[in-house]
Amino acid sequence: MIAFAVRRFIQAIVVLLAVSLIAFVMFKYVGDPISQMVGPETPIDQREALREQLGLNDPVPLQFMHYLGDVVQGNFGRSFRTGLAVDRVLLERIPATLELAIVAVLYAVVAGIPMGVYSGLYPDRWLSKFFQTVSLIGISLPTFFVGVILIYIFGPTLNLLPTFGRGEVVHIGFWSTGLLTVSGLKSIILPAFTLGMFQLTLIMRLVRSEMLEVLRTDYIKFARARGLSNRAVNFGHALKNTLVPVITVIGLQLGQVIAFAIITEAVFQWPGMGLLFLQAIQFADVPVMSTYLLVVAVFFVAINLVVDLLYYVIDPRLRLDRAVAQGG
């Protein structure tokens, strides 16, 4: 277990190095930051001075090494656009994105798993068929479209929910949360619903098909033959056996939601990392973009690590060291 964790940790570092290299190289050629930072009337020698000052004239590998060295020391550079330290800017934005992502995935899990279990247990009931049909819509409609429709319905038409921003936030240490204020809670409903809808349908369909599969297995039939109650069979035995693939997907989706909340954040003007990233792209704000990529990669790697460890908790067959010790 510990050896496994260490191994995964080393792998994680390799992944992050690779991501930082890609981020660095990509943004190296994404546009000229100097022309964004200065006005069109700035003379060339001033531009060159600025270029020299920012280290943009160094050989590319050297720039990368500088970059890595800075990153390791927690120095992510300054935004070309605002001149503020990038880590501070991002840190301010991370809570908004994480709260949105977690609320969205929670809602997708809490609604999606029971819907999937129900339609797996009773595939012929009309409600199951209804879920299936609705989930097709959820899976095929693009996020921005759903968002815009929701804004139209709940904003100007019904005037029920706020359609942009985060509402009031409360600061707890470096973390700012909107989940403790009424306006914050109201504000998160629409974006979280929009962001979580695809995940909801995905989880529901996955749980359904996994349940259908597991319910056909011999051990479920044998559990019934032992006279166990329906509840024990369906939830204790069947649902738990669907969890490995379901947790994999939920983990990956949480990563996806964090990374690609961009569209939802743009639609609802949600002040998270995604919105920041969009603005950074417009200005070729390389430090912000590359740091954003790094942060997202860290989240992905961390989530995957947790998912892998969860496998161990759920499925004893994966605890190989034990099986080997007992002779297979």
Binding site: Y219, F222, D315
Partner: peptide, 11 residues
Amino acid sequence: FQDPLTSLNPL
């Protein structure tokens, strides 16, 4: 049942 390998819940 027939197949002891699949009759028991692996978890």
